[in-house]
Design a binder for these strands. Structure first.
Length: 481
RNA sequence: GUCCCUAUCGUCUAGUCGGCCUAGGACUCCGCCCUUUCAAGGCGGCAACACGGGUUCGAAUCCCGUUGGGGACACCA
């Protein structure tokens, strides 16, 4: 155990939590917990153009919904705050000044229009699209004059020539980059805000981060970060670039091809435990064959050594299966709490807990989501008003009405109306009539539920009660004859 | 286009030091069993080491190349 391990999750508040980011957060959390370290939440809100009201709160809410609680963050403070980059501007300014003073950065007065035109021209000629360093060659008097005149400017990193930059990545091993290929990255924007590249390096260092976990899309900007660490005199944290989560066509998981927001899955009725369990296995596995693991178990088993290198397709069907498994094992009270508002929305709010608990017991083996209970078994809450056509055709025989009519007397005379009483009575009745149990059961199911499938007939009749069953049989007799 | 990453069933993956792999598990699909229905469950089946060279007695496992896939090339993260 190492109590100095510090891992951060650094999302930008975009309005929703991308499932890829959820996985990064999960691995952060698992790693921090596994190593007895600290998990830090830092908000990367350095893009004022994309500022969204309420996004930060929503982000924290959905993280908590997933069961992931951080140790330090904007809402709970900590020794290395503030935890919102927009509140740390002087720190980035200071770092930029240091780089400027060292000669490892320079002021750039180029307008975005000029930059765009330059890139376009470079592209047309098939040249590299790197910044042409016009402003790097400005005379220092000239720079001072423009600065004094308040000309809008950025600060750029001066990438040294001819270097081989080496990253020792915890999942990818040694990766080499040539500095000549790197662009003179803007570090400080003209609005005074830092870009990601500056802010992440400054904050990771000042927040004493030891392990940087992030998506593979960041791998190509790692050399810039390597340089920044060196220039600023910061020791290197451990880096782990995680494999991407993919669309079915193997491109990076995108909004275009289905749901990417954790909120979407939450709203569709997925359980956080199922989502988290599923997400954990996208790019990692414990090395044994058990797949249903709680967060506590994941914490025990997690290690970066078992994180894979290649992208993983987000398989909706498997997630569905996970949800089904969790629902099956979920305590009844929790399912009931979820079910109640769903029923109320359909005007079926007036049922007591005992009844609903029975419904849940009978349905949990047959659904993957709580909302499927009212969808597939509305007849628990309302007498059927129609009868599934295909089932009528298949199960309603010419003598079914007779079978049912005579069985009514049996039902009325039963000493108790539970499945233990109903089943033998039904068997005896069928035998006495010289038929099979199915001759009674199928029409009876159709009459009481209106559909061909569902829980055991006698169990369901017990839950429905004698009165409702008799009423439904009467009605079916009127409508099906 | 340039750079970087990557490559086992349709999908998630096991395969960590090459032989125990006629390549294992899970999801999906199909069949059978169970059964009053529908499910669930049990059992079984289809299905993969991208290709080509090496190294080696022996390679899914190591090396090289090819091809495929992906990512990054912003005053967005």
């Amino acid at each position: 155990m190492n109590d100095t391990v510090r891992v951060r999750f650094a999302p930008s508040p975009t309005g929703y939590l991308h499932v890829g980011n959820l996985r990064t957060a999960l691995y952060d959390y698992l790693l921090a917990r596994r190593l007895g370290g600290t998990w830090v939440l830092r908000i990367e809100d350095t893009d004022r153009n994309r500022h969204l009201e309420g996004a930060e709160k929503a982000l924290m809410a959905v993280l908590r919904w997933c069961g992931l609680e951080w140790d330090e963050g904007p809402d709970k403070g900590g020794p290395y705050g503030p935890y919102r980059q927009s509140e740390r501007l002087p720190l980035y300014r200071a770092a930029a000044d240091t780089l400027l003073a060292q000669g490892n950065a320079y002021h750039c007065f180029c307008t975005s229009e000029r930059l765009d035109a330059m890139r376009k021209a470079a592209q047309a000629e098939g040249r590299d699209e790197k910044y042409d360093r016009t402003c790097m060659h400005l005379a220092s008097g000239d720079v001072q004059a423009r600065l004094a005149a308040g000309v809008p400017h950025t600060v750029r990193l001066k990438v040294p020539a001819g270097e081989t930059l080496i990253l020792d990545d915890l999942v990818r091993g040694r990766v080499e980059f040539q500095s000549d290929l790197a662009d003179d990255q803007v570090l400080l924007k003209s609005d005074g805000f830092p870009t990601y590249h500056l802010a992440v390096v400054v904050d990771d260092h000042q927040m004493r981060i030891t392990h940087v976990l992030r998506g593979e899309e960041w791998l190509s900007s790692a050399p810039k970060h390597l340089l920044l660490h060196r220039f600023l005199g910061y020791p290197l944290p451990h880096f782990a670039h995680l494999p991407l989560i993919l669309n079915p066509d193997r491109s990076k998981l995108s909004k275009r091809q289905g749901n990417v927001a954790v909120e979407d899955y939450r709203d569709h009725g997925y359980f956080p435990e199922a989502l988290v369990n599923f997400i954990a296995f996208l790019g990692w596995n414990p090395g044994h064959e058990r797949e249903l693991l709680t967060v506590e178990e994941l914490t025990q088993e997690f290690s970066l050594q078992r994180v894979g290198k290649s992208g993983a397709v987000f398989n909706q069907e498997k997630l569905h299966w996970f949800n089904e498994q969790y629902l099956k094992a979920m305590p009844g009270e929790r399912l009931l709490a979820t079910l109640r508002p769903l029923l109320a929305a359909r005007g079926w709010g007036d049922h007591d807990d005992i009844f609903l608990a029975c419904v849940i017991d009978l349905m949990r083996e047959r659904v993957a989501f709580v909302h499927e209970i009212p969808e597939k078994a509305g007849w628990f809450f309302e007498d059927p008003t129609s009868y599934e056509e295909a089932t009528v055709r298949k199960r309603w025989k010419p003598d079914s009405a007779g079978w049912l009519r005579d069985f009514v007397a049996v039902l009325e005379s039963l000493p108790a109306f539970d499945h233990a009483t109903l089943e033998p009575a039904a068997r005896a009745y069928a035998e006495g009539r010289g038929g099979k149990l199915g001759d009674l059961v199928h029409p009876l199911r159709l009459a009481t539920t209106g559909v061909g499938g569902g829980p055991g007939l006698f169990e369901l009749m017990e839950v429905l009660g004698r009165e409702a069953c008799l009423r439904r049989i009467q009605r079916a007799l009127e409508m099906l004859v």
